[in-house]
Amino acid sequence: MKLDLSAAWDGAMAMIRTNREVVLVLAGVFFFLPYLAFSLFLPDSGMAEASAANEGDMDAIAAIVMEFYAEFWWALLLLALIQSVGALASLAVLGDNARPTVGDAIRRGVSLLPTQLGAQIVAALAIFAPIVLASGIGAATGSAAITGLLTLLGLPVVIYIVVKFSLSSPAIAIDQTRNPLKALTRSWGLTKGNSLRLFFFFLLLIVAFLVASTVLNLLIGLALALLGEELQLIGLAISGALINAIFSVVAYAVLASVHHHLGGKAIATVPRAGGEE
Results as ranks from 00 to 15, higher is better:
133 L>M: 10
19 N>M: 11
123 A>Q: 12
155 L>H: 05
127 I>R: 13
49 E>C: 04
97 N>I: 08
225 A>I: 12
203 L>R: 00
104 D>L: 15
8 A>E: 04
147 T>H: 03
244 N>Y: 06
73 W>G: 06
33 L>T: 11
26 L>M: 02
265 K>V: 01
256 A>E: 12
187 S>P: 06
26 L>W: 02
219 L>N: 02
84 S>R: 13
160 Y>S: 03
110 V>D: 09
175 D>K: 03
76 L>C: 01
168 S>L: 03
274 G>P: 05
24 L>G: 07
4 D>C: 05
27 A>W: 00
276 E>L: 09
144 A>F: 13
249 V>L: 09
60 A>H: 10
243 I>A: 12
65 V>I: 13
263 G>R: 00
32 F>T: 06
43 P>T: 15
138 G>Y: 08
204 L>G: 15
5 L>W: 09
233 L>C: 00
8 A>K: 00
235 G>D: 07
206 I>H: 00
23 V>W: 04
220 I>N: 08
81 L>S: 06
153 L>H: 15
94 L>Y: 02
58 M>E: 12
208 A>H: 04
122 V>Q: 03
99 R>P: 06
133 L>D: 04
107 R>T: 14
244 N>K: 10
63 A>V: 06
191 T>H: 05
174 I>N: 02
2 K>N: 15
24 L>A: 15
21 E>C: 09
177 T>E: 15
131 I>H: 08
190 L>A: 04
103 G>R: 13
80 A>F: 13
131 I>D: 03
239 S>D: 04
186 R>M: 12
212 A>Y: 08
176 Q>K: 13
147 T>E: 15
183 A>R: 00
167 L>G: 01
69 Y>D: 14
167 L>K: 00
120 Q>L: 10
139 A>S: 13
258 V>G: 06
223 A>H: 12
30 F>Y: 03
111 S>N: 05
203 L>H: 08
151 T>P: 01
51 S>Q: 13
